[in-house]
């Protein structure tokens, strides 16, 4: 439709201060920062630009109320059961609703052809992204750089982004892999630039991230859409299912497959330790860590849960814990 999505999530600490006085103390720092950032919005120019919020967690649901932004947010109501027929049906209806909104905004019609070509563009991006993940697993690409590439997804036209990642891969692929070291798996709440505190600390502690399941990194999108039906409704259905059913965010009630995804990576790449990052106030990830920890430990993996936010003051404390973890 000639539109590009732009991600809003922010990892900026300073800006969070702008919203500190009129938001709950224990609010998720990511949303606090995003909310602060919206203070910079120039209302006159953006009146017609909608911003779309999938209701993934309670903070997001109440975000509009707290931030009081103009224009009002358009909520995509996310069914929290994604394995059943009802949830999938409802999500598809939400997606059709979104299409109507965008069509009204632009005055253009979404059609089968543009959907198909966009699916193809994303398939290509997914292929390139797969190679990026491979290089990281082979230790050619440092965890921090992987995060830089993944974080910038959807901040530019997807084709250009893919092209640039491809170019970068050509350069990096010639580099020798880093010596076998202490690889860890990073799970939990999202990490967003510029708040790479935890990544830098993990490196300082003599470890590197070989894999992760963060929704701003490896899990930034669940992969390309496979469809059987090339009709408009067929592709829409495949699209909706792909982004709903395949998502393993802890916000879902029936999310037992997340552990599989983590265990798989751990087994295939001989990673022994999991660092679990919880942003203070990020309840879904916090809750799920209690289920994940015993299951990982029972299989002989080491587990370290780190609860922090965007402040730098606790860095030394975290570093000490990470160093101790690295020695195991």
């Amino acid at each position: 439709m000639g539109l590009h999505p732009l991600r809003l999530g922010s990892g900026c600490f300073c800006v969070g201060r702008l919203s500190a006085s009129h938001s709950p103390v224990l609010m998720c720092p990511l949303l606090k920062a995003t909310m602060g950032l919206l203070q910079f919005q120039a209302p006159t120019q953006n009146d017609t630009m909608p911003w779309v919020v999938p209701t993934t967690c309670d903070w997001v649901v109440k975000f509009q109320e707290l931030a009081n932004t103009q224009p009002e947010a358009y909520f995509l109501e996310l069914p929290h059961l994604h394995r059943g027929e009802k949830g999938q049906q409802r999500w598809l209806e939400e997606i059709y609703g979104l299409v109507r909104l965008l069509e009204n905004q632009t005055g253009r019609k979404l059609n089968r052809k543009t959907l198909l070509s966009s699916v193809q563009i994303f398939m290509h991006a997914w292929k390139v992204f797969g190679r990026l993940i491979e290089l990281r697993r082979k230790r050619v690409l440092a965890g921090v750089w992987f995060m830089v590439a993944a974080n910038s997804f959807l901040l530019d036209s997807i084709e250009i982004w893919t092209e640039r990642v491809h170019q970068m891969l050509e350069t990096v692929a010639t580099h020798p892999p880093a010596p076998e070291g202490n690889g860890v798996f990073l799970a939990g709440s999202p990490i967003i630039f510029p708040n790479f505190k935890l990544l830098h600390l993990i490196e300082t502690a003599g470890m590197d991230v070989y894999g992760d399941d963060l929704c701003t990194s490896e899990r930034i999108w669940p992969g390309a859409v496979c469809y059987e039906e090339p009709s408009y409704r067929g592709i829409m259905r495949a699209l909706a299912e792909r982004y709903h059913k395949a998502c393993i965010c802890p916000t879902f009630a029936d999310n037992e497959r997340r552990i599989n995804s983590i265990l798989n990576t751990l087994q295939q790449h001989h990673i022994r330790g999991v660092v679990y990052h919880v942003l203070k106030g990020c309840h879904p990830f916090d809750i799920e860590s209690f289920n994940l920890e015993p299951r990982l430990k029972s299989r002989g993996y080491h587990f370290l849960k780190i609860e922090t936010d965007y402040v730098q003051e606790d860095s030394q404390n975290i570093l000490t814990r990470l160093e101790a973890f690295g020695r195991i």
């Binding site: 495949a238 497959r257 599989n260 798989n264």
Partner: peptide, 11 residues
């Protein structure tokens, strides 16, 4: 244990 439940098979 390897299935991440993406649902492509069903689709």
């Amino acid at each position: 244990d390897g299935c991440i439940g993406c649902g492509n098979c069903q689709c």
